[in-house]
Computed example of a mutant assay.
Amino acid sequence: MADRLTVDLVLLESISDRLRRSGEALRATAGAPRIPAAGEATPIFAELLAQLSESSAGLAAGLAEAGNRVSEAGQTYASEDSAAGQRISGVS
């Protein structure tokens, strides 16, 4: 069992950035897709494409939110670690 906790803040920010960029890339590809002419099945394809677009938008938003939360977690850790270090220094 490790006796210390180490958090790689650079790695956390990299993960955060990648999540955000992935969400932005997905959002950029979103849009109203062209509905194929499929005869009687056209309404079915239209509904499927609408659901896919909605799901993609939700996933893009979720990726952005996850990126924000990872970044916030790293900032919180850095702040609390610094404060704890100052308290320990004050004890000696």
Rank of each mutant, 00 (worst) to 15 (best):
A2I: 06
A2D: 08
D3T: 10
R4H: 14
L5Q: 14
V7I: 15
V7R: 06
D8Y: 05
L9C: 03
L11C: 06
L12A: 15
L12Y: 13
E13W: 03
E13L: 06
S16L: 03
R18H: 12
L19P: 00
S22A: 15
S22N: 08
S22I: 01
G23P: 00
A28S: 10
G31Q: 07
A32H: 10
R34Y: 02
I35E: 04
I35K: 01
P36F: 05
A41K: 10
P43M: 11
F45S: 01
A46D: 04
E47S: 08
L49C: 01
L49H: 01
L49S: 00
L49I: 04
A50C: 00
Q51M: 08
L52W: 09
L52F: 08
L52C: 05
S53K: 08
S55V: 05
S56L: 10
S56T: 12
S56M: 14
A57K: 10
A60D: 03
A60K: 03
G62T: 09
G62S: 14
G62L: 05
E65A: 15
E65T: 08
A66V: 05
G67Q: 00
N68R: 13
N68E: 11
V70T: 10
V70R: 00
S71R: 09
S71K: 04
E72W: 11
Q75H: 15
T76I: 15
E80W: 13
S82L: 14
S82T: 14
Q86Y: 08
I88R: 09
I88D: 15
S89H: 13
S89V: 11
S89G: 11
G90S: 15
V91H: 12
S92L: 14
S92N: 14
S92V: 14
